[in-house]
Amino acid sequence: MAKVKGAIIIDKEKCKGCELCVVACPTNVIGMAPDVNGKGYHFAYAINPESCTGCENCAIVCPDGVISVYRVKVTVE
């Protein structure tokens, strides 16, 4: 059976902590870090990376374009 797996990279120094990616993610991958980046924002990070399907939703709603998305098809036996 083919399954899609994804991964995201968030440029935490450019993240402004708006949280729009958090609500855009259908699989609850993203959370907000308790610590802050150089600009003082609580930045987004993959709190639950295993659930990522690489759907791109987080990246396309991100106003600052800080999220890159990777996706592969994997065969599950």
Binding site: K5, G6, A7, I9, P49, G54, E56, A59, I60, G65, V66, I67, S68, V69, Y70, R71, V72, V74
Partner: peptide, 17 residues
Amino acid sequence: MEIKDIIKEENLVYSKT
């Protein structure tokens, strides 16, 4: 599959233009 195996140039599907 490990996350680090997914994050490779050939698997990039979206990034800032």
